[in-house]
Design a protein around this nucleic acid. Structure first.
Lengths: 226, 226
DNA sequence: CGGCATCCGGGAAGATACTG
DNA sequence: CAGTATCTTCCCGGATGCCG
């Protein structure tokens, strides 16, 4: 947390409201996006930097320190022979996920949003979580593997439940490789798959019918008329 | 919205993620608290200043301008003879309420929160909305009126549904007058009502049994062990 | 390479005073 | 009452360099 030079205490809103206190903890610039990148599991300093392009190293250090002091993030050293340091959410930190998802759904309705900016793989996964509607998933049973950069992710829909994690997919019907933003745009019906394949942005292998059934579940919320 | 001197465009995260874009819009300091104060209806510039001590006039002006440009807040001139200007949420802005409530519930679990700071009347009302648990409201039928400063508010529980607004209560069982923070602390069982009355911080008139049934519904979430 | 300290410029936040 | 103008403080973000 940021320390005030005079009082040597974190700068706060000095408001007993829980929302205000939450903003004391996660309201600083980049803080919630760091949390977003940690929702799918532990990550290294460099991973975070790579997925948050505008965030400089010193600010990332400050945020991680603040979030750790607040009990939201924990740093852990992996056992040898890996012996690398990773950052992960605490149990309570993980409970901030609904905040991230709610903000995502709400923000997606903004008329000012620009879908042409880069999208991290974690954001792609969380976007699917946020936009999943069990009412449209009737009878769908599909597992999809994603390969984005050197990261592997997967999602499955079954019994009207969506699951998704980082790692290798257990028996995927179809594998998508490419840019997360392009993949997400395709799933939401904003970009055509043949075109993306023709341009080499996305490659597909496996059951394309399964992919179509999966994509049919998702729909972007309508823009708020401004 | 804030404008960058070089590009003359608002400073953004440049991230296609909906969460990041939401932060572009409401992530600036004080923005979400301004929204919080508007959730229960239109307010005047001076009302907002009074309920957000610490927020200076120029920053409030900037936030209101930014939120208006984003389509979250609208400024409206009341019809004569009132003829005063008020700020209110747009339909889409009102949909940010779940974000505020989620953050409130989550922030209330922080071990670092200090309930001794002042609490606005709107925060008191939203806190009740956030902490209401229909499962504990079985058979409760109570309406409570609040008088905080010169503002009137009310809540009712009936058929396991909580309602609450600004204004005069339609047939309240009991009326509470005093500081919102003290009232909230009493409802959550953190402060004793007899003591608050003895010290003149809260005054009660009406059916005290109804108040007790109402208060029994509410319980603060456990602190996250840090 | 990963993590962190330090310096610097620009700009946002905060306090105060002032105006219609 | 509803803002605006001004000034100061401090945070953000970039660059650099140190150390394991």
């Amino acid at each position: 947390m940021k320390l005030d030079k005079i009082t040597n205490k974190p700068r706060r809103y000095e408001d007993a409201c829980g929302t205000a206190h939450a903003l004391d903890l996660i309201g600083e610039r980049w803080a919630l996006l760091v949390i977003r990148e940690l929702i799918l599991g532990p990550r290294r300093f460099g991973d975070l930097r790579a997925d948050l392009p505008g965030l400089s190293a010193n600010v990332l250090t400050q945020r991680l320190e603040g979030l750790e002091a607040a009990g939201i993030v924990r740093r852990r050293k992996l056992a040898p022979p890996a012996s690398v340091q990773v950052y992960e959410l605490t149990d309570w930190g993980r409970e901030a996920e609904p905040i991230v998802l709610h903000m995502g759904r709400w923000g997606a309705r903004s008329p000012l949003q620009d879908p042409n900016f880069p999208l991290s793989a974690v954001s792609m996964m969380l976007s699917l979580r946020a936009m999943f509607d069990p009412g449209r998933a009737d009878g769908v049973d599909v597992t999809i593997a994603f390969r984005c950069g050197d990261g592997a992710y997967w999602v499955s829909v079954r019994d009207r439940v969506l699951r998704g994690e980082r790692g290798e997919a257990p028996g995927a019907d179809v594998t998508l490789a490419g840019d997360p933003g392009a993949i997400t745009g395709m799933i939401y019906g904003l970009r055509s798959l043949p075109e993306l394949e023709r341009e080499g942005i996305v490659t597909v292998s496996g059951d394309r019918e399964a992919l179509a059934r999966f994509a049919a579940i998702f729909e972007l919320p309508p823009k708020a008329c401004s």
